[in-house]
Nucleic acid binder design. Sequence first.
DNA 1: GAGCATGATTGGCA
DNA 2: TGCCAATCATGCTC
Length: 363
Amino acid sequence: MDEQPRLMHSHAGVGMAGHPGLPQHMQEGTGGTDGDGRKQDIGDILQQIMTITDQSLDEAQARKHALNCHRMKPALFNVLCEIKEKTVLSIRGAQEEEPPDPQLMRLDNMLLAEGVSGPEKGGGSAAAAAAAAASGGAGADNSAEHSDYRAKLSQIRQIYHTELEKYEQACNEFTTHVMNLLREQSRTRPISPKEIERMVSIIHRKFSSIQMQLKQSTCEAVMILRSRFLDARRKRRNFNKQATEILNEYFYSHLSNPYPSEEAKEELAKKCSITVAQVSNWFGNKRIRYKKNIGKFQEEANMYAARTAVSATNASAHGSQANSPSTPNSADASFCHQNYSYVCEHLILSISSVHFGLSFCNL
DNA sequence: GAGCATGATTGGCA
DNA sequence: TGCCAATCATGCTC
């Protein structure tokens, strides 16, 4: 039996003038057999091919051998090669230049952004850092959450890469297997390189669809992890008493216009050891809650107004002491009266600022 | 555990 | 972009 693989390119050059697919001995066929005879032969061969799968293995092997030795076999083989060549070309033409799958691109981009695919980012995901920055929480409290997030993300990354490797290995193995099968089959039927190429691309497409499922699952896992992480970050911590006092002092001393500038916010944030965003949140909440329930905040407003007045008085007293020719310990009646007047004045100012607050509320 | 307080988030608006 | 208003979610107090 002729066991040489019959890949189509090996026959391409064999043929006769009128029919490039037919071998030389067919060109001489006019001397021994007529056209009807050839048709009969080809018909026989095709009939045998059609029935070969219905036979037992031994019978099929014997029949295969007979077919391989048939004098018409090379001619028929070449004709089939030509037909296949044309068919494959037309199929390929329709399949060329497939646009990249947008969903796959989206998944790839997301995995890259989350640090699952691509080079491992030192210390984990950019998303974690972004979330941390957005939340504006204290660093020390979040470090444990960060490491937990990073550990889980790293786990996801590891699983993803392991699975991806497995898929790639399986894909390569399967491709090799199919190519071996095709080579084996090429002994008995014409198989073009393009056909092999097409088969390989079909396998790759199948495997890439599996990969897409893997990417989809990974993305879902990352999203779940991230939402859990962000939910965890919603854990509220009340500001400490000192920070609340500082913020309240500013609020009530600027009640006529409780909108701190960026610089003021930064300064307050610094003083309170919180972020500017938290200062903004605090003032946003305070304004709205004050406006909604002025009565409730009245007492607080008075208290802070008085406190501001007292501190201003103290500052003034220090100033007076510095500028006064009298001794630092002097506490005569006029000084007391002056101070009293000053406190009263500031209290009036503070109360008027509360009234300004009322007018601000009516805006 | 209920109710209130409070920091954070979200959607709409100018 | 900053603000408002509503809402959520958690902390705190009783």
